[in-house]
């Protein structure tokens, strides 16, 4: 913008200041980058050091105690059970949220039926409801149907994932043309066939974006398993990590390792999908 202005004394001074500003800006950006990455670096380094090394001071280089820490960690609790349970919960939850979210989004977007507006408004309004609000009721419900300490209690509610439904609806609204649906109907395609074979593929970009975000959200959930699950063999990973915290303080290395086991897969996952996540959030924000 400034390039257009005539180079008088004032603008020369501006450019000098501007260059200084640029240097200062990059320093700030790099400091922030270090702030964001440092805790993860400390975590990985300390997962390979002995507790006495961790107590004695900072290190930038890894130690040789990874195996010892692993044995100590597994002696306390087998964290891979938590890992397995998290997958058992997260994968079906994500798929259910995606499929039924898309099916409902399609109905709201392309069909006219009585009560449509009210139902949609009620669904949207629940996005303001904190998860704590239904907690006592949900616990009682699950106890009533005998699903306490059953991973199914963590999966079932994902059939009604309001934010997934809303996100996919916005995409179907602007990307699925009514004429394609009419053409399919004239060709004799059943309504379910039309949804599965025509609408789902078109909506796939939105479905995959929201599914990535849902996967992470289900993977990170602590409160529900903390309350609904009570045996060690069925806890999910966040519960395992929170149990590890502080409970074997004499084994700091092992504790860092258990945090690393929860965090590193998410970092690797992010490296592959960061582009979709960031563009997905941007779209969600401007359209919503």
């Amino acid at each position: 913008m400034k390039e257009n202005s005539i180079l008088d004394k004032k603008s020369k001074k501006f450019f000098k200041d501007f260059r200084l500003g640029v240097v200062f800006l990059y320093i700030l950006l790099i400091i922030l980058a270090i702030v964001c990455a440092a805790p993860f670096y400390v975590m990985i380094i300390n997962a390979t050091r002995s507790t006495s090394q961790i107590n004695s001071g900072l290190s930038l280089l890894p130690g040789k105690y990874l195996v010892d820490n692993y044995i100590e960690m597994q002696d306390y609790q087998n964290i891979w059970i938590g890992f397995k349970n998290s997958i058992i919960v997260t994968v079906p939850s994500t798929l259910l949220a995606a499929y039924f979210g898309a099916l409902t989004a399609y109905a709201f977007s392309k069909f006219n039926f009585k009560g449509k507006k009210i139902l949609f408004a009620i669904a949207l309004a629940t996005m303001m409801v904190p998860i704590q609000l239904g907690l006592v009721g949900y616990y009682q419900l699950m106890r009533g149907v005998g699903l306490i300490d059953n991973l199914l209690s963590l999966i079932l509610p994902s059939i009604a994932n309001v934010s997934a439904m809303f996100f996919i609806k916005m995409y179907i609204d602007s990307n699925v043309d009514d004429s394609i649906l009419e053409a399919a109907r004239i060709d004799g395609s059943s309504e379910f066939y039309t949804f599965n074979k025509i609408v789902l593929p078109i909506a796939m970009p939105a479905i995959s974006t929201i599914s990535i975000l849902n996967f992470v959200a289900y993977w990170n959930n602590l409160l529900y398993p903390l309350i609904l699950i009570n045996s060690l063999g069925k806890f999910t990973l966040p519960v395992y990590v929170s149990r590890a915290a502080g409970s074997y303080n004499q084994y700091l290395g092992a504790q860092y390792l258990s945090v690393a086991i929860a965090v590193v897969p998410v970092i690797i996952f992010f490296i592959f999908v960061s582009r979709w996540i960031i563009s997905g959030i941007s779209e969600g924000a401007t359209k919503g």
């Binding site: 239904g134 006592v136 059939i159 009604a160």
Partner: peptide, 23 residues
């Protein structure tokens, strides 16, 4: 439209709305 939204809203009212009112 009704058939397509049944699973979602069945789950919605049973697992989300009912617990809130029970609370």
């Amino acid at each position: 439209g009704y058939i397509f939204i049944i699973p979602f809203f069945a789950s919605f009212f049973i697992f989300l709305i009912y617990p809130v009112f029970y609370s």
